[in-house]
């Protein structure tokens, strides 16, 4: 059953800029341009696209913050912009760049306050808090005012805050932005478990394809306000013809190596770049390389989202 239904959603902004000496030009900018999709309960959907593509604008309409210019929109059966406060009890929202926590209050006080604002029953709050504190490793942070937390710590606090009232739907706007690799990996694990155990529907925007690869079964690509792809990640990579790259450091300088399923795109001394289709596994390539050559070091590069989108257009 679809918990989020979006039909022909459109959102324009009026931008005023100085035209002449006194004249101010009014220009209409289309941020979201006729987007339609449906999300079923329990899905984890990645929403990707370059900066200014309309991701955040769409999330803001789905949460009821922004009123759509036109189109139809239902989240858990409610029209978000008309029934914003009612919807607020059924969704959790995390904005990556800004905290929804009270800046000067210790995390513990923020949580207690939110639980009462959302009318979370006392027992439920106690168990939820215990679970979240354990999963997100918040115990040492509970008595620290939010302003003193690092970005990664604050993000974990924000995620816990968004889940205290058991929302069936969770939106995350750039949750991994600015986090280090370990924090990112922990966050991804947490979200995957949340979805598996509680069946929470998750929609997240990101710049990072690795986020998508690790948590999302479905990916939507938005560019210039339009949905240009909706499907699973493998299909996206196949459609786009995206490639991943193995960067290998060999013992000595050699002719381009021959490994089935790859093409050497660059050679620089003992270092060589082998590209292969993004949807196939790197494991046989790595073992073939190691079996046939003296490998000193190797790493795998993921395609950048901008490249994938560019290829998506090229594929028509």
């Amino acid at each position: 059953m679809a918990v989020i239904e979006v039909t022909d959603l459109r959102r324009t902004f009026v931008v005023r800029s100085k035209g002449g000496r006194l004249r101010r030009e009014r220009r209409e900018v289309v941020a979201v341009d006729g987007v339609s999709f449906g999300i079923d309960a329990g899905e984890v959907v990645g929403f990707i696209g370059p900066n200014g593509a309309g991701k955040s604008t769409t999330i803001k309409m789905l949460t009821g913050i922004l009123v759509p210019t036109s189109g139809r929109l239902h989240v858990d059966g409610l029209d978000p912009s008309r029934r914003r406060t009612e919807l607020a009890r059924r969704i959790g929202v995390v904005f990556g760049h800004r905290s929804g926590l009270w800046w000067d209050l210790p995390l513990r006080d923020s949580f207690a306050l939110l639980a009462r604002i959302y009318d979370v029953p006392r027992d439920r709050y106690r168990t939820n808090l215990a679970t979240l504190v354990e999963l997100l490793d918040l115990a040492p942070l509970l008595d620290v005012p939010v302003r003193q937390l690092s970005l990664g710590q604050r993000m974990r606090g924000d995620i816990a805050a968004a889940l205290l009232h058991d929302p069936p739907i969770l939106y995350l706007d750039e949750p991994t932005i600015g986090l280090d690799l370990i924090s990112k990996a922990r966050l991804r694990d947490f979200l995957r478990d949340l979805n598996a155990e509680r069946g929470t529907t998750i929609m997240l925007t990101t710049h990072d394809l690795v986020d998508i690869e690790h948590i999302c079964r479905r990916v939507m690509v938005i560019d210039a306000g339009r949905l240009v792809f909706d499907g699973d990640l493998t299909a996206l990579q196949r459609v786009g013809g995206a490639t991943r790259t193995v960067v290998v450091d060999l013992e000595t300088q050699l002719e381009p190596v021959r490994v089935p399923g790859t093409t050497v795109t660059r050679v620089e001394g003992p270092r060589q770049w082998l590209s292969f289709p993004a949807h196939s596994s790197a494991a046989p390539i790595v073992s073939a390389l190691a079996a046939a050559y003296d490998v000193v070091d190797l790493s795998i590069q993921e395609p950048a989202i901008e490249d994938v989108i560019r290829l998506l257009y090229a594929a028509g």
Binding site: K60, T63, G64, I65, R84, T85, E86, A88, R89, I91, V93, F95, H97, R98, S99, G100, W102, D104, I117, Y118
Partner: peptide
């Protein structure tokens, strides 16, 4: 300006109450 007003709009309490009682 810093966008935290948005966070008030996704809570089930009137934003005026949240801003007035804040701090």
């Amino acid at each position: 300006r810093d966008g935290s007003f948005d966070a008030m709009l996704v809570r089930p309490v009137a934003p005026l109450v949240q801003i007035a009682a804040d701090q």
